Simulated scan of single mutants.
Amino acid sequence: MIHNIARDVEAFTSNAFLVSPGERGDHGADGRTVLVDAGANFDAVSHLDGDIDHLDAVVLTHTHPDHVGNVDSLRGRFGVETWGFDASHEAVDHAIADGDVVRIGTDEYRALHTPGHAVDHLCLYAPDSGVLFAGDLVFAGGGFGRTDLPGSDRATLVESIERVVETVGSDVQVLHTGHGPSVVDDPSGALELALQAARTR
């Protein structure tokens, strides 16, 4: 079960996807309750209390402030550790390297280092279910991550999108993005559209 706890938040925040192995986030032997990105500028703890009583991990697609602002409050409430590409960042407790496999919910996700928007950007893809967490690499409607920020680069972003397109092909079933709506209708087409746009804009 995947639920964006930031869906109705009006403050500036990333999406924050709660992935749980069963109803109401019940802990199961075969799954882990994980928050993909922490969001910022809203009370993430209150959005989780009542739905879950624990978190196994927070996995970060990257460490821009809108994705990590709630990390400290989540650590305080759930005693949870965070995972991301750059373990030297204060918001990241443990590193996820390119190609590592991370268990989120009941699926095994392959981590893809996809810089361009941020040097520490990761996408996470589960081949068995076809679920892709794309962070700020691409968005619905052919959008793609900003490349006017420190550490960002358009050519590198294009290469990262190309890598994701090659990795997931037509097998991707749902695309969860760092901002805006998830894509459940032709997510592979949305990836191709974003790639074309990033190459030409």
Score class of each variant (00 low, 15 high):
28 G>V: 10
4 N>K: 07
126 A>D: 09
84 G>P: 15
154 R>H: 05
168 V>F: 12
1 M>R: 00
18 L>T: 11
110 R>M: 10
120 D>W: 00
12 F>K: 04
26 D>S: 07
71 V>D: 14
139 F>I: 02
144 F>W: 12
184 V>W: 01
140 A>C: 01
123 C>S: 15
33 T>P: 15
64 H>Y: 08
193 L>M: 12
44 A>R: 08
82 T>I: 03
127 P>W: 06
52 I>L: 03
104 I>G: 07
136 D>I: 01
91 A>I: 01
42 F>V: 10
57 A>W: 03
115 P>L: 05
51 D>P: 01
147 T>D: 01
181 P>M: 03
98 D>L: 03
102 V>Q: 08
4 N>V: 00
151 G>L: 05
56 D>Q: 01
78 F>D: 06
99 G>A: 00
107 D>E: 15
142 G>Q: 04
56 D>M: 08
20 S>D: 08
142 G>R: 05
102 V>L: 02
168 V>A: 10
112 L>N: 03
94 H>D: 04
140 A>K: 03
110 R>A: 03
78 F>Q: 02
166 E>L: 07
100 D>M: 07
171 D>R: 13
105 G>V: 11
41 N>T: 08
30 D>R: 06
1 M>N: 03
11 A>Y: 07
135 G>M: 14
168 V>Y: 13
85 F>Q: 11
170 S>T: 10
200 T>C: 01
110 R>D: 08
122 L>R: 10
113 H>C: 10
38 A>F: 02
32 R>F: 14
36 V>Y: 09
161 I>W: 13
20 S>E: 15
59 V>P: 11
94 H>R: 12
82 T>D: 08
150 P>W: 04
59 V>L: 09
88 S>F: 04
28 G>S: 11
99 G>Q: 00
170 S>N: 07
113 H>L: 11
106 T>D: 13
159 E>S: 13
101 V>P: 13
178 G>E: 12
123 C>R: 04
22 G>P: 09
105 G>K: 11
57 A>E: 12
133 F>A: 04
72 D>C: 05
123 C>N: 11
101 V>S: 09
33 T>I: 10
82 T>N: 13
144 F>H: 14
178 G>I: 03
134 A>N: 09
7 R>T: 00
135 G>Y: 14
142 G>V: 01
153 D>V: 00
35 L>Q: 10
43 D>A: 13
169 G>Q: 04
103 R>T: 12
36 V>R: 09
145 G>V: 01
178 G>K: 05
158 V>Y: 06
176 H>D: 00
35 L>M: 10
17 F>E: 09
183 V>R: 03
105 G>H: 15
10 E>W: 03
201 R>Y: 00
35 L>Y: 01
45 V>E: 00
65 P>D: 12
164 V>Y: 12
169 G>W: 06
2 I>H: 02
42 F>Y: 14
184 V>K: 09
134 A>K: 00
198 A>F: 04
